[in-house]
Design a protein around this nucleic acid. Sequence first.
DNA 1: CTGAAAGCGCTTACAG
DNA 2: CTGAAAGCGCTTACAG
Lengths: 337, 337
Amino acid sequence: MVVAANLDVRITIYDVAEAAGVSTATASKALNGTGRVSSETRARIKQVASDLGFRPNALARSLTRKRSFTVGLLTDDTYGRFTLPVMAGISEGLIDHGVSVFLCAIENSPELAKTHVDAMLDKQIDGIIATGKRVDRSLPVDLGHLPIPVVYALTAGPADAVTLVPDDRQGTSEAVGHLVRQGRRRIVHVTGPGSFRVVEERAAAFVEALHAAGLPAQTSAIMRGSWSERWGHEAVEALWSGTDRPDGICCGNDQIARGVVDALRERGVDVPLDVSVVGFDNWEIVAEQTRPPLTTIDMNLKELGRQAGQTLVRLVNGEAVETGLWRLPCTLVVRGS
Amino acid sequence: MVVAANLDVRITIYDVAEAAGVSTATASKALNGTGRVSSETRARIKQVASDLGFRPNALARSLTRKRSFTVGLLTDDTYGRFTLPVMAGISEGLIDHGVSVFLCAIENSPELAKTHVDAMLDKQIDGIIATGKRVDRSLPVDLGHLPIPVVYALTAGPADAVTLVPDDRQGTSEAVGHLVRQGRRRIVHVTGPGSFRVVEERAAAFVEALHAAGLPAQTSAIMRGSWSERWGHEAVEALWSGTDRPDGICCGNDQIARGVVDALRERGVDVPLDVSVVGFDNWEIVAEQTRPPLTTIDMNLKELGRQAGQTLVRLVNGEAVETGLWRLPCTLVVRGS
DNA sequence: CTGAAAGCGCTTACAG
DNA sequence: CTGAAAGCGCTTACAG
């Protein structure tokens, strides 16, 4: 069996123009829908182009247009779970606009970051999206004085830039709201280290939500620890060694929540009959494997990535965009806890 | 305070040539280390270039050189944990060669895949790396007849291509070896669904490793189920309801191992005193949070990605590379189980 | 050793 | 409505 060999004959706009009996200028206009071209010649040229299987060389086009339809994605998060959906959202949201995205894993290295940024600048990228693992930390590179726009997602950016983050306040309020609707009245918050800004934001939102529900909100009801299952266990131990035991526990993340649920089960406390528990993150590997599966808050990270990408193209197009922190809504995911 | 404004004056090789009093041809040769140029003029040109802050436009360069120093990365794994380190390894291994990588999240969509591939081909990428979540499944797109080289990592590729995967056989043998060194003699294998090829490969390697250790290896010692903690629990229940209880459990992944360890603890069986357990994957979120932390097998995915990238550039450079399945070694990570 | 010229593949004023 | 020409920013034979 003989298969048509790929002869590697790149066909160019010259070939199309010649075959259609027009100039390359006309061919270009017809194909791009720019300039004045009679609908007949336009149709003929398009037909010829598709017959020939013509695909314009984007490099040449970018060289004249000064626009590469390419952007860079910088991340310092290699193993984390948060940036993956963000990245997928960016990629998906951008391909619709014909823009491709360069992935740069920069770990924590300023040199690596600079190398990547320089390489991409040389390749004439139109803009950059910076993303990372902590909303209150910035990447080890200053993107503030680049000749191209930059959007920040899930990592700290300067005040005069657009930064997209999940709305921790609203998410926490969803969590508390759910607990209240379950009839819970003695609700505590078991969360991560106070050094994380999200911890303090969620803590403040927690207090506020209790107030809004007409429930007593002592700050003693907020327990800070680490982002671990272990801490969930310890918190339950501390709580149950006292007399004022809660009937609802709002956790800072899913790992803590899982530790809490496990500790409760090991004590013979029924979840959700005796105590309701809500996590945060909707990290499926944790939430779905918990017994019972965790009710939790989803940060909609893929959508956040999508919006980051779209915002960047708006900026690249010269559109005005409101700078500052954009907080994107979270969603309550009800499971069994 | 006045900050130097970015005047957006792209300086080109014409500027460098003029400032150095030479032709652009000479400037190009001097800067690229090609052709004959006296060391004095070369030095002068380089000095001028760096004084001016000249950075060559990679688009223009690619247009003439027919090489873009850009490759594509296709993945169908948006949320999984495996492709992230692979991707990071690719990115890191490639930046040293000055090549940037386009990230394409194609989910499961053939259309999306084609859109991405076409967009990248238009942008004149030099090659493609395909990666995914299952070694025994291929991406929903045929990359076999492209005019550029393709390397497969963690996803199925055609026989005439290079495909990189972890060495499941060797990894499993490491796991069994560890159990044997702990003095275990009644070892079982609790693993995932038989529909996964890795399950059968690891099962075969398990039997082989027992033989090699001079231990009895009944196929009844292999229990297939799902990749979940739940299955780990169920397996322990089944095992402990019989009389022939194992003293060593080699698990198909970390989630199963965690379920096993939890179930054992709940039964009052001490790990690792009474029973030793080894996982597979070294998925830190699971392995480190288990009580006790899991001893497991690391697949060295980042290194796998790095090699995938380097293999691709070799191919792009026209070097000969041995095709077929490349199995990369796994590493035993000893923790507390 | 150095440079004039052509070329990579497209787009875009500018004429006609 | 159509086209000749110049230009995007570089590299590469080919002369000298």
